[in-house]
Design a protein around this nucleic acid. Structure first.
Lengths: 210, 210, 210, 210
DNA sequence: TTCTAAGCGAGACGGTACGTCGCGTCTTTTG
DNA sequence: CAAAAGACGCGACGTACCGTCTCGCTTAGAA
């Protein structure tokens, strides 16, 4: 689970504790509903029914549809990690393919884009998305970069601020391109396409940084 | 205006003709509402009121919220064009800045992402978006590419299919990165950032194609 | 129909007019639900369903359960009238029996007492009850009194204020006693009981006034 | 206190005994809530909070809102008694004024009528009301009658069944008229009105019985 | 004195109804 | 015939109480 509304106050001793099973059931039901109905036809009442839970139980934990869906799909991105495949190109290919695989799941596709759309003009929601989904993805870029520097594939960065900017840029390029390919162009991000994309990306990075 | 629902029936001779002013008023009201309310709080009843029009009139022309918003924001993208600045880098920079300027407007930001989200699982809507918004943007990539080839900056492409794939990829990279920067990372796409982005992109393109 | 919320503004010309059939269906459904469910289990959603009408239609006309039920049972009391049976005793007996007959219907019994209970601390509701139900019953007392005076059974009242007080008192005695008998004591107000009651009442009136 | 749910099981020897203070606090809180909120806005959760008691504690003693309120207001009627003022008229006046004084308290007014309304179609509740409230009031009529017979103001009744019917009738007239005056007509039952009422009542009784 | 069964506070839980909002359709009158 | 006005059926919303159910902790009589 990700961060809830009134997370882990250690002084919550009294009264009946919240059911942990309910959390899991609700999040699973949310993903299932996202698959079957998509974002706009997804109903909190329906999710509650699928989870075998009362609507009030759901509202006790999440303040609305957006927050719920963020947590539901955030779990999908937790499995992302950088596999050490021996070279920067292979590492990037592995991560991008993992990312594409997750976005290939309808619940992620339907949920992520909708929740980002909803975050326009809702700073709290945007922050939740950033914290629960974006930051832990960006961590992959950092990891891959450090590993490549250790291998000597790219030079170590002396200016930490410039490094930060570079990481942000690379992350925007990778995530943005894959998302645009799959959600707007509605084309699959298969191995062949990923290879062509990475060829351009790697050439750009090494040329620009070298 | 873009394509409507049952437009251009040539046999529409009899009866009171539809008010052309109403169309413009509705689309303008839609953009205004997108700015003030965002996508999810925008209601068709409110748009009709703002436009000084009955709900019936609105529904006679558009089948729903999504279609209306697609047409409303498509008009914003019509002003995009490739300025001939003498070099590929300068041309790309110009286009990306124009694109970023449009996405900087709240009605475009709020409307575009939401409408793409809504298109998940609605093929007709996705096709409308592609026709009204995406394709005419992709045309910019084609134009810029041809101009660069005419200048000799990049070699002419012999295989038309590969050229098509390359154009799609570049478009996904450009549009996806800018959108991700502005909507997900919520950072401005200012000149400094665009220059860094284009440096990577151009190096990648020329290296990969050369 | 009784008085509604925004009754008969003569300037309501434009737009689709409210369905008169819906009013009748809703009031009938309300009475039916009062019979089958009683006051506390009666639901506005259920009434709407029974009437074949949307909940919103119901709320457009009445502001809540109490107002609806007042109008629904007020129709039952409209049929009350003073039959001219030739003597004051017979007239009173006739009216009381009619009144008892109406209170014998479960919808009246369940609805009236509940709505009076609800009116504690709700002056608008109390006024609605008085206007729709009480005043037109009190008129019966006035009619019966005038008729008896015309017959010479009771002397004409010179002081109009004293007459008004007398009418109020008699009305409280008659209505209160019958209601208490039927709702609190839960005993039938049959002819035999009514005769005994009227004997006391008439003796009291004539003695006190004579 | 009146009769509880499972009170006085003689086998209740072991375990922590129920707090007697809680009972009193709950009933007092109920009356206070009746005054401030009226019947329909009174909630058991709120009563529990006011009484400084958990909802569980409340439900352990009463099965619902109606039962609780019956017990809460029944205590108010316990103080009623027939003062020996030397004449039937004076006795009746005293009792009616006491009764009116109790009904003048908002908790009694709001609670009594609502609970009677709720009892429509709930025989157990009606029986509880009769046992806790009605019967001990009717006892006043019996007492007053016996005292008047002892004084020789009214003849002794030979037929016990007829006496019972007469007592019921007088009780319905007195209680019904006062309740109707105060709750439906929403007028005060002051000394002046009570005198006029009793004049009619006494004349009726003596004439009808004599 | 320890054991133990019930009472007690707190509050989560499955429900049901609430009253509102927006949708997209329909039925009016007006122009 | 279109347009404005607005009523209509529908379905979801988020909230409020209901009455029940765990929890961990007294509390007082029985062993």
């Amino acid at each position: 689970m990700v961060g809830d509304m009134q997370s882990r106050t250690p002084a919550a001793r009294t009264g009946r504790p919240r059911s942990a099973a309910a959390d899991a059931a609700i999040l699973a039901a949310t993903r299932q509903a996202l698959v079957e109905l998509g974002w706009s036809r997804l109903t909190l009442g329906d999710v509650a029914t699928r989870a075998g839970v009362a609507k009030t139980t759901l509202y006790r934990r999440w303040s609305g549809k957006s927050e719920l869906v963020v947590d539901a799909i955030a779990e999908l991105f937790n499995e992302l990690e950088v596999p050490d495949r021996g070279s920067l190109a292979a590492d990037i290919e592995g991560v991008v393919l993992q990312f594409a695989a997750i976005l290939g799941r309808p619940e992620a596709r339907n949920g992520l884009i909708a929740v980002v759309a909803e975050a326009g003009g809702d700073d709290a929601l945007r922050e939740r998305i950033r914290h629960s989904i974006v930051e832990r993805q960006k961590h992959l870029v950092v990891t891959g970069r450090e590993r490549a520097q250790a291998r000597g594939e790219i030079p170590p960065e002396s200016d930490p601020e410039a490094a930060c900017r570079a990481i942000d840029l690379i992350y925007d390029i990778v995530a943005g391109t894959v998302v645009h390919r799959m959600l707007v162009s509605a084309e699959p991000a298969d191995t062949e396409w990923v290879r062509r994309f990475i060829a351009v990306l790697l050439a750009g990075i090494t040329a620009a940084e070298g």
